[in-house]
Design a protein around this nucleic acid. Structure first.
Lengths: 225, 225
DNA sequence: TGATGAGGTTAACAATTTGATAATAACGCT
DNA sequence: AGCGTTATTATCAAATTGTTAACCTCATCA
């Protein structure tokens, strides 16, 4: 459950603004609009949007100028900037991208494609991990809380699943016992020393697969083979 | 001084492959090529590219299938995937992006635009430097708590690892026995004189490599060759 | 309402690994 | 050779983890 993303759209055509706003809101984003470059800069400063969609040709400051100004300010380092322009000439596109934009879209664009692009950008920005991950024969389905090993479903209890999922989130990395406690059990709960071991044991037993390695004095790590 | 990025291109048209390869190499990227989906999967596994450019229509597995397979494997979480296709229909584009691709480009594309896009993608990618130190054949991987020597994994016990890690943190510097005691054992613990020697010996034995030098009356230092 | 069972935790003990020490050998220097 | 230092080795204690069974809690259901 991530926080609602804020998107700022700057375009001087009210129709386009409205269509895009409607579609992005329907997708669950919070939308702010601006009708020209200066408005866009103000709104950006005020709302700190996660994504800024800029038309290139706008009254006052044009999109590329706006992008330039934004990119010089460290507070917008983590804001995505995307151009959406009717200009489809190569030079403008290259210039736009080199100004520091993250993408360059050309009008007309279908709402569905726009949303896919936006989602893709946020997916990468948040380094989101997929719901289903695969390690050779082993499949971890986070959505259904399910493990499959060679097409065989294996039922893990919640803590067991969360523990395996944590270890598998960074294969090879050694997780300290303390980190495991914090991430699986939370910082509030205090449990005994042997709790982790017992869960590890149950996982090993159920999977019957040599994928969790003990690093003595340090922690555990997940590795296939 | 970032490492040269590796880009894998998969396309069944040799001409396109060559043009893209040429341009990306001129931009300073390392390029690997594949002629179909299965080759692409193999090459991806082998080279762990930072970016994978996939044609959609290819013999064998098509691009979307390849993307699907890659996206389920956590080892490719940090690999960018971009489709480059002659298919410009909306449905395919949306499907491609929803498969987990980072961008969808349509042919024909000018080399300059392609390069701008690629640069923009890498600019945004959060590239965490891995917590590893390399000295020629020797790799110290703090995250995995292991040592690699010529692709051979060597397991050191905790104190051994910490000791080697300390010495290697400043190659050439002579660490006094006292400093070593303070940093590896802490100020509280008091251990005998010979303890350090014994650990040094174990490291030397396991690595079977002449990288720790004794400076008599002073301490030890780490040096390759 | 009490029986049942799954999930989770703990205690007790076994097994294993690690780390420290002591004893002795080897080294380097004067 | 004598001295101080480091290397080597075996040994033992301590720390850590593995294993098992017992226990507690809670939800479910007859």
């Amino acid at each position: 459950m991530s926080i609602v993303k804020k998107i700022l759209i700057a375009d001087d055509e009210p129709d386009i603004l409205e269509i895009i706003q409607f579609n992005l809101q329907a997708e669950g984003y919070e939308v702010i609009t601006a009708h020209n470059g200066n408005e866009a800069l103000e709104a950006a400063k005020k709302h700190q949007p996660n994504l800024i969609i800029l038309d290139i040709m706008m009254p006052g400051k044009n999109g590329i100028e706006v992008c330039n100004i934004l990119r010089m300010q460290p507070q917008f380092n983590d804001s995505l900037i995307v151009f959406l322009s009717a200009l489809s000439d190569e030079a403008t596109e290259v210039r736009g991208l080199e100004t520091g934009a993250d993408d360059y879209l050309t009008k007309p664009i279908s709402p569905k494609v726009l949303i896919s692009k936006v989602n893709a950008l946020f997916r990468r920005l948040n380094n989101e991990e997929p719901d289903v991950v695969k390690f050779g024969d082993l499949i971890i389905d986070r959505e259904r809380y399910l493990i499959k090993l060679k097409e065989e479903e294996i039922i893990l209890a919640r803590k067991e699943f969360e523990l395996l999922d944590l270890l598998a989130s960074k294969p090879g990395k050694v997780f300290l016992r303390n980190d495991i406690l914090n991430q699986v059990w939370g910082t509030e709960v205090i449990v005994g020393d042997r709790t982790i071991d017992v869960h590890i044991r149950k996982i090993r037993q159920k999977l019957n697969l040599n994928c969790i390695t003990t690093v003595k004095g340090v922690g555990y790590k997940f590795e296939m083979q």
